[in-house]
């Protein structure tokens, strides 16, 4: 994968600051030994921290897949002429958007099992809360994307007798998705960061593991610095991936 110019600069800056931080760790204020790969316990700590990556990724990716589907299903009624369908769309978006993600996580994990009489694990509670929260934003993104497609495209599709579903599936959505890809990429990055909030209900993702290690090692500065680096690297890779996808889809159209 080819990195764009400013990405390379960013990575260089990152490397330089990392070295600076590591060097300053020689002074008495820093205690890098806590995550030093040179010692056995340091190595164990480091692996414990990095092990959270799997859950952060799993949480975010599962949640975004659900929120994209739900978002689209909420966006479509919003584009209809029917007042009731429009009202449904507005109510959903306005209500869900007004709930802080952290509150949503707590409510889904502690509240939902009581009213719905179901058992819900930490992982699925996290996924559900993140997906629900994000779906309101996805709905707005899809609505804007679909509305940006010229009216002539609908008319041409209808004039060759395509049904509503076919028009959406083959004509409108492929063009709309190409346009909203940068916004979808944004949401994925946002989701990766917001997944850290699921740590409050005990999900063993990156942030939770860092918190747990701080409690036993008392080295918050070093451990949270590692945590920042973990998110930064993860998100830089994801961003580069989204950009690559955008470029590929652009060349798809010939010019």
């Amino acid at each position: 994968m080819r990195l764009a110019g400013h990405y390379r600069t960013l990575v260089k800056m990152l490397a330089v600051s990392l070295i600076a931080v590591l060097l300053s760790g020689c002074s008495s204020n820093w205690g890098w030994y806590v995550v030093s790969p040179m010692t056995k316990s340091g190595m164990n700590n480091l692996l414990f921290l990095i092990g959270g990556l799997k859950y952060t990724l799993l949480l975010s990716v599962t949640a975004i897949m659900i929120s994209v589907v739900v978002g689209l299903l909420v966006a479509l009624p919003g584009l209809s002429e029917n007042r009731a369908l429009k009202l449904f769309n507005r109510t959903y978006v306005e209500c869900i958007r007004a709930i802080p993600i952290l509150v949503m996580i707590l409510w889904v994990y502690y509240g939902l099992p009581q009213i719905a009489d179901i058992q819900i694990g930490v992982f699925w509670a996290g996924v559900l809360a993140l997906a629900l929260s994000d779906s309101a934003f996805q709905a707005e993104i899809f609505r804007a994307g679909i509305q940006s497609i010229h009216r002539g495209q609908y008319e041409a599709a209808r004039s060759i007798s395509l049904s509503y579903t076919d028009t959406m599936r083959f004509i409108i959505l492929p063009q709309a998705i190409k346009r909203i890809l940068p916004a979808l990429g944004n949401q994925l990055v946002y989701m990766l960061k917001m997944s850290s909030l699921v740590s409050v209900i005990g999900m063993q993702e990156l942030t939770r593991r860092a918190n747990e290690l701080v409690v036993t090692e008392y080295r918050s500065l070093e451990i949270y610095t590692i945590l920042i680096v973990e998110y930064l690297v993860l998100i830089l890779i994801v961003s580069a991936g989204v950009r690559w996808l955008e470029r590929r889809m652009r060349t798809d159209e010939g010019s």
Binding site: Q153, A156, D252
Partner: peptide, 9 residues
């Protein structure tokens, strides 16, 4: 149509 309205994708 006047504007062709071909499907660009």
């Amino acid at each position: 149509f006047q504007q062709f309205n071909l499907f660009p994708h």
